[in-house]
Design a protein around this nucleic acid. Structure first.
Lengths: 238, 238
DNA sequence: TAGGCTAATCATGTATACAATATTAAAGGC
DNA sequence: GCCTTTAATATTGTATACATGATTAGCCTA
């Protein structure tokens, strides 16, 4: 039984209509973000429909949403597959995170309270724990969740949603260009960040976030991978 | 014959498959951005399906995309309607534009060339012309197009896409909270902006864009409109 | 045996039929 | 006469059937 199937059985008992779709969406989305579904993996409609016990109609709706979020790539008449980000897309995503996430830090510093700081610390703790116990997939998602929660604290739902999409895509980027074992965020960075925010030092937090993101990006090795159809014309000249 | 119908006949002869959907998407999207379809307008699936001569299946796909872009609101079992942005959403959208569009100006100033500047000037010219000849709908869309094109020149496709969505939503916001006759962008602002960019003065352009966006936002009257279901309990006390 | 052609299989694109639910109109009671 | 209840209508939700186009396997030929 596949990971996705197990996740389906775990998460989707008998909910009604929309709940069901939302649940399935999240299960698939999580599987991608957690890198259990790797870039390039094909997502056949029939297969998914059978796993989740709904018709292809519902699956298509979910695949379309994932495609608009650029987690899956929809090729006409060829179906869906987990997106394999290009080097250029990777650069765009991290530049976008620099601009948006750093820009939000002052707002977050202004609005954060005791309760929110505690919640963030708990998330950071869970993340470290997942790392220690070797659950890398879980750690990756928790790390993304942390960045998203942070953005939500800014109070701007629109920008938080953008950050959510950027973090999901970052996970894909790490899967393709990251080194094994290294999952981006350093273990204690997030805790340090919470400290600056709680102290109300927005500018310091902003600078720290900038270094944090640069560090992640620097840890990538930007070689476009294996299955890019080798262009023989390029290789052998004319 | 409705505006949408005419647009459909004009734009959608016999293309094949995906082209067709893309065309229909754009026709509906444009109708919303140009405020020919006003916030709150219901979009019944059957009606759209008939207008565009496709089945509801295709229409649902398009409505879903529009919903994810927050141009239409999908209420379960109640169908689709053009989104009526709340005051809070309006604030979020303009704050997001401040952060992103202003942040992109230095990049744009660095990358803009003669050809690009000429293209932008042409767009600004078309916009003024539309305004002068009383085609407010067209002017609104051209104004949004200008901002989007600008963002594209930054070279960051991801951020450009975000700006695209923000501009579409801004059009909706103007439709709800804007004053009649005033369509946001001052006629010559865009030309001034091109000047700073062409001179390579990114910081100046950034500051100007900031003022430009603030001016638009300031021109709104943020009273939540008419059809918010009147809460009789509130009005008459208990 | 390698290359290319053909046929069979498989997957996606699209429409339609049917079921479930919301809206509207009508009728009846207070 | 107005409000409530009930039936009719209209609209969305879901599955399925069929058509179209890709992929693969097998076969034939050179």
């Amino acid at each position: 039984m596949s990971e996705v199937q197990m996740a389906a059985k775990r998460h989707a008992p008998e909910k009604e209509g929309d709940e069901r779709h939302e649940t399935i969406y999240r299960v698939v989305s999580d599987a991608i973000v957690e890198q259990r579904l790797k870039p390039g993996a094909r997502l056949r409609e029939d297969a998914l429909a059978e796993v989740f016990n709904i018709s292809r109609t519902g699956i298509r709706k979910i695949l379309q949403r994932l495609a608009l979020e650029q987690l899956v790539t929809l090729t006409p008449r060829r179906g869906a597959s987990v997106t394999r980000p290009t080097a250029e897309e990777a650069k765009d995503v991290f530049d976008a995170r620099q601009l948006i996430e750093c820009g939000l830090m002052p707002d977050v510093a202004r609005r954060i309270g005791e309760k929110e700081a505690a919640e963030l610390r708990d998330m950071a703790r869970q993340e470290r724990q997942a790392l220690r116990s070797g659950q890398q997939s879980i750690a990756i998602r928790l790390s993304a969740d942390f960045h998203v929660r942070l953005a939500q604290l800014s109070g701007n739902a629109t920008l938080a949603e953008f950050v959510e999409r950027l973090c999901s895509r970052s996970s894909l980027i790490l899967a393709v260009y990251g080194h094994r074992g290294h999952l981006g965020c350093e273990s204690h960075d997030h805790d340090d960040l919470i400290g600056y925010l709680e102290a109300g030092n927005g500018e310091r937090a902003k600078a720290f976030m900038s270094r944090h993101l640069k560090a992640i990006e620097a840890s990538l090795s930007m070689v476009e991978g294996e299955d890019n159809v080798p262009d023989l014309q390029d290789i052998f000249g004319s």
